[in-house]
Structures are given as C-alpha cells and as structure tokens.
Write a protein that binds this DNA or RNA. Structure first.
Lengths: 110, 110
DNA sequence: TTTACATATGAATACGTGTTGATATGTTGG
DNA sequence: CCAACATATCAACACGTATTCATATGTAAA
C-alpha cells in the first residue's frame, strides 16, 4: 500500500479550503455517520437497508445521508421507490482504510 | 499516487473500533486543530511558533495539542524550554492529502 | 533563590449539532 | 382516484465542546 512515499510535502491549503476540509472530516467524526459511510463502501445500498444494518431510525439515516451527500462523500441514485447510496470516489476508501490502519497501529504499539 | 487500487474491500471494523476511528476523524474536523496538524506535517514545530503561524492563543493551541497527542496524531519532544510537535506517522499525511485531493476534485467537478 | 520565559491545566461560557417524533414528498400498484 | 411503501424534511430538545481567562507547572539564566 502507498508505495510512492517519497517524502513530498503536502501543499498548504488556504483558509477557505481548510474550513471545507475540516467540515468534511467532521462528517466522518460521528460514529453513526461513519457506520453509514462504511455500509456504502462496498456497493450501492438503499436507505432502509442501511437503517436496518446499523440499527438506526430511517429518519436519522436520511438526515445523515443528506449531509454526506452535500460533502460529496456519497452519491445516491433513485431506482423506483428506493434510493441507493454508495461512496462517491476512491479517495474516501483510502482515507477510511488509512485511518483504520492508524487506529490498529496505535493499539499494537500501545 | 495510490497505484495499487485493486478494488479490495475494506474490512469492517467492530463497534468499539468505529468509535475510536470516528473520534480520531472528529479531531480533524475542527479548522483550528486541522491548521495545527498541518503545521506539524512538514517537521517539528514549537507550540509558540504554531500559535504565531495560525494566529491563535497559546492556551488554545496547547489544549488542542493535548487532544491530538492523545489520539496519536502528533507526538511532542521537549528540547529545553520548548516542546516540538510533529505528525505521528505517515498515515496522517496520506489521510490529509487524500482529503485535500477530494476537496479539490469536488470544486473542479462542480 | 528569584526572575523570565514556554507550556500545560482548570473552570466557565456560548454555541453547534446529533437525535427523536411527527409530517411531507415522492413512487408504484390496484 | 386511493392506499401502501420509501424517503425526505421540519421543529425541538439534550448534550458535547471550542474558546477564553486565569493560573499552575516546568525550564533556564542571573
């Protein structure tokens, strides 16, 4: 994983970009929303099925999906009655998997 | 970047891990904390210099650094009077740079 | 030890937001 | 049309937390 780590410095974003990026990170910072996003990583899932899988109310899931959609973390496509949601792009998968690795490392090292 | 994207599914973390991961994401979800972390990406910086660079009070920076340290996002080493902080590991850089890329893509596509 | 500097901690407040319950919108079939 | 289902939106409460100010701890020089 991540073979091309040649120590390149990350370009510093401007003030307005930082706010947007932080806003996006903040969305991942809620356990319920993170669960919803995790369910959307392996393919398109309907709202109702997400609610069932993570054991949350339909209203709550819909609220969170609205936020995730606004930040382009997920995208939804209507198919008759139901709306199927899935992760927007590949960056999201990398971000989540990197964070999982970080958390696992912390537990190991500690 | 990220050349080895062979469509592998991300392993689903358990409930307790999800809470930890969300907690870590949440820390990145505050603009001030994100700025602090960004300053720590390119090398070790003292608390006072961070405060000066991002134009925040010393107390606030110290409070945030305490949280970032607890989540192993940064690590600090004392050198006489000052304490120098830097990003804990390489995952953090990837996570941040991926999110920057995601934000940039969103603006382009939109 | 005293003085000055750098960092950490404590308490209090103001603000945002996750969650719930009820309701509205949209879609398909009878 | 109406009824049944899926999703979205609205209003309101409860709770966490980012920030500030004051103070404590730690470190080095005089």
């Amino acid at each position: 994983m991540h073979t091309d780590c040649t120590g390149e410095k990350t370009a510093r974003p401007g003030e307005s970009e930082i706010v947007v990026i932080a806003e996006t990170f903040r969305l991942l910072g809620d356990p319920t929303r993170l669960k919803i996003l995790l369910e959307c990583l392996d393919g398109a899932v309907s709202v109702g099925e997400i609610a069932r899988r993570i054991d949350a109310s339909q209203s709550l899931v819909s609220h969170h999906l609205r936020l995730l959609r606004a930040a382009r973390l997920v995208k939804g496509t209507r198919q008759s009655k139901q709306v199927y949601y899935e992760a927007d792009d590949h960056h999201i998968r990398h971000i989540v998997s990197d964070m999982v690795a970080h958390a696992a490392e912390s537990e190991d090292t500690q």
